[in-house]
Design a protein around this nucleic acid. Structure first.
Length: 732
DNA sequence: CCGAGCCTTGTTTTT
DNA sequence: CAAGGCTCGG
């Protein structure tokens, strides 16, 4: 007991022990929020105020959820099995898997990710003969999502729609929902939407859950949207014990429907609510805090609050002013090398506004042999080869999933082109069944061509695995499937060079399945697919390895590092161009900066370039956020010269100095060029290859490690060569 | 039906 | 600048 309340300041202690009634904990950045959350859960359990299954804790990411569970376990000295800590989405997914039958969904429903949704939306738009018009799938999905986040269903939307555009969107929305249902699938928003619907419409189910959850705990409350708010309301029963934790200054998901009013109006929404503010910061130096609050101060939509620390001193913010994105990377990597000795790489992070900015950093880090990990970007499960394999698995689990069906019916090629596919699908849909269900009874449909009938082996294959899935462990099933489909052979056939990486990905994927099977009692294919569809890259991020971390500012929420680099601080990029004219969006960008800055414990670097390629060369000016930082807190470093590549000597000429007198030694003029010198590998160059001899570069693709050249070798012909593997010498 | 190559288009963050 | 769509030739 004393251990649970030890080392807490007065406010933290109060937040931990105020268990009854609605409670809002306003937790400033670095104020010990995680500690309060975990102690509070442990305290409730230790004091036997509730059984583990009567607690519901909701976090923002799966990673945060499992960390919280772990910490509670260790505070109480043992594994608490039925403690429910999860994200909103995974809570809802599980809830609907159990209870969703009431809404007419099968328990094996599929969760569509964004690209599945987009394919479906595209199909719908085509079906309504709106293809190629101003109704792009993405924009329409955006609108549909916004509506769902406000609990506006397709029918309600149609009722309210006025004018051609809204009415057309209403049509698309309604068809999209119809198709989802026919696929026995839900998109991300449906998980929340349907849960709220079900809790509201079915009194028995609603009461059962309201009775069950004696204590509800919500983290990152500032980033909840209206549907999430309604979900909490419909889960909160007579116990009335809800504790939400958040900080309006860190609300950065407005574009996803997050409603900052949820936190600002908590007292109104939950009468009798108490408010506890955690304002002492234990993370950052006062200089970093002053800089962060200098910026956030410019926002109107916030409650004034004073984050303070009793720490002293600290280094000024280091502002790196450079000429280009490439120079930015050089400068940042240079400083990383200095900092890594004092804190280690795993305590350093490079944060950027958009994923696309990672590229130059990757190149230069590789060049300097600095290990790094990127969080986000193209998520593992979004890779084409993984999505293809997943589509097989999804179809095996849910034969109504036309989107997966569509994806794999002709992959690998089975002679079913768009024509045949259209025939199958439109016939199926006229019969009210899915494409695959139709094929199961293909003999009943003489109108299908003989060509289409060649699909039978595919049906037999899927049927075989549908039989097996109950008895065969998931990883073995996937392994068999990959062999049956001749998946790896197909990858090699497509492109021998790229195949290697893809095959490794497939192997890693199957390994992941094996691991999942090992750690989960009921490792059914259904559960596995449901779990990974809600998994994101940040969930697999681990601080254990000694690597530098790079990610977007959004992904960095909730994390902390000794040294942080915020890069790309330019008008148009951060803040983004479209936010500049929208006061609300601009404030969100500013909060995003605030989140980024307050990740740093000891040292904060900012970088800004005067020109950056963003579809064509664009001059850019330093971000307004830099000007909002008190000048006295900044130390400037300028690097105003371009490194130029000298074609005569084959070296870089660096006339500038950065920082203060240190020159990057130009690379020696060499005979052997390793793959890092991507600039040297240009079309027209003559190269020497150990086995193919001399050849001329005819095209260049990729960069860094995936830099691939097309070379025409004398007497050998055209070859695609991955520079990483080939020891190429430039000879002319 | 399939593949290559040209053209257009869109361009942020993520459960 | 990149990816996806579309057209054309096989």
């Amino acid at each position: 007991m004393s251990r649970l309340l030890k080392d807490l300041n007065k406010d933290q202690l109060e937040a931990v022990t105020t268990t009854e009634g609605p409670l809002l904990v306003v937790a400033g950045a670095g104020s010990g929020k995680t500690r309060v959350l975990t102690r509070r859960l442990a305290y409730i359990l230790y004091e036997r105020l509730a059984q583990p299954h009567q607690l519901l804790a909701v976090t923002f990411t799966n990673k945060a959820a499992s960390e919280m569970k772990e910490r509670v376990n260790s505070l109480l000295g043992g594994e608490i099995p039925s403690l429910s800590v999860s994200t909103f989405h995974s809570f809802c997914a599980r809830f609907l898997r159990r209870e969703g039958g009431v809404l007419g969904y099968d328990t094996n429903y599929t969760i569509f990710d964004e690209s599945d949704s987009e394919t479906l939306a595209k199909n719908c738009i085509k079906e309504l003969n709106l293809a190629g018009s101003q109704f792009s799938p993405r924009a329409q999905l955006r609108k549909i999502s916004t509506a769902k986040n406000k609990l506006v269903g397709a029918e309600d939307y149609a009722k309210r729609a006025s004018g051609y555009f809204e009415k057309t969107t209403a049509q698309i929305y309604s068809l999209y929902q119809e198709r989802l249902r026919r696929c026995n699938a839900m998109d991300f928003d449906d998980l929340l939407f349907n849960s709220v619907l079900l809790l509201g419409s079915d009194a028995e189910i609603g009461d059962r859950y309201r009775e069950r959850f004696k204590y509800i705990l919500v983290d990152e409350y500032q980033d909840t949207n209206h549907v999430q708010y309604l979900l909490l309301k419909s889960l909160l029963g007579r116990h009335n014990n809800i504790c939400v934790v958040g900080d309006e200054d860190q609300s950065i998901y407005g574009w996803r429907g997050a409603d900052i009013r949820n936190i600002l109006e908590f007292e109104k929404d939950f009468p009798g609510a108490r408010i506890i503010k955690l304002e002492q910061n234990y993370r950052s130096t006062p200089i970093i805090l002053d800089a962060a609050s200098g910026v956030i101060r410019n926002n109107e939509a916030r409650k004034a609050k004073k984050l303070w620390t009793d720490r002293e001193g600290g280094d000024k913010l280091q502002l790196l002013l450079v000429d280009s994105a490439d120079e930015e990377a050089v400068a940042v990597v240079d400083f990383i090398q200095r900092e890594q000795d004092s804190c280690g790489l795993k305590e350093i992070a490079v944060l950027y506004r958009t994923n696309a900015q990672s590229r130059p950093f990757e190149e230069h880090l590789r060049r300097e042999n600095i290990p790094y990990q990127i969080v986000g970007g193209i998520a593992f499960y979004q890779r084409k080869e993984i999505k293809d394999l997943l589509a097989y698995l999804k179809l095996i689990v849910n034969v109504k999933d036309d989107i997966s069906f569509q994806r794999i019916i002709n992959y690998p090629k089975r002679g079913i082109g768009t024509r045949s596919l259209d025939n199958i699908l439109s016939l199926a849909h006229s019969r009210g069944i899915s494409g695959y269900e139709l094929l199961l009874k293909i003999d009943d449909y003489p109108e299908l061509s003989a060509k289409t009938r060649r699909i039978k082996p595919f049906i037999e294959l899927i049927e075989k695995y549908r039989q097996e899935k109950e008895s065969v462990p998931i990883d073995l099933l996937a392994q068999d499937l990959v062999e049956d489909v001749r998946f790896l052979e197909e990858l090699r056939r497509e492109d021998e060079i790229v195949a290697q990486t893809k095959i490794e990905n497939i192997e890693a994927f199957i390994e992941g399945m094996a691991e999942y099977a090992e750690h989960n009692g009921e490792a059914s294919l259904e559960n596995y697919l449901a779990d990974i569809s809600l998994f994101t890259d940040i969930d697999t991020y681990s601080e254990i390895e000694d690597k530098l971390t790079m990610m977007t500012l959004h992904s960095a929420k909730g994390l902390e590092f000794d040294t942080v680099f915020i890069v790309g601080l330019e008008e148009g990029l951060f803040p983004l161009a479209r936010a500049i004219s929208e006061p609300m969006e601009l404030e969100e960008e500013r909060r995003l900066f605030y989140v980024g800055a307050t990740r740093a414990k000891r040292k904060l670097y900012l970088a800004s370039a005067t020109s950056r390629y963003r579809f064509g060369e664009v001059e850019s000016i330093p971000s307004r956020f830099i000007k909002e930082i008190p000048e006295a807190l900044l130390e400037r470093h300028e690097r105003r010269t371009q490194r130029r590549f000298d074609h005569e000597s084959g070296t870089y000429q660096t006339t500038g100095f950065f920082p203060a007198g240190r020159t990057r030694a130009p690379k020696a003029t060499g005979v052997h060029y390793d793959y890092e010198d991507s600039e040297l590998m240009r079309v027209g160059r003559i190269v020497q290859h150990p086995t193919f001899g001399r050849g001329k570069i005819t095209s260049v693709e990729g960069y860094g490690e995936s830099l691939t050249l097309e070379i025409v070798f004398t007497g050998v012909g055209k070859k695609k060569i991955m520079v990483k593997y080939a020891r190429l010498k430039i000879v002319g």
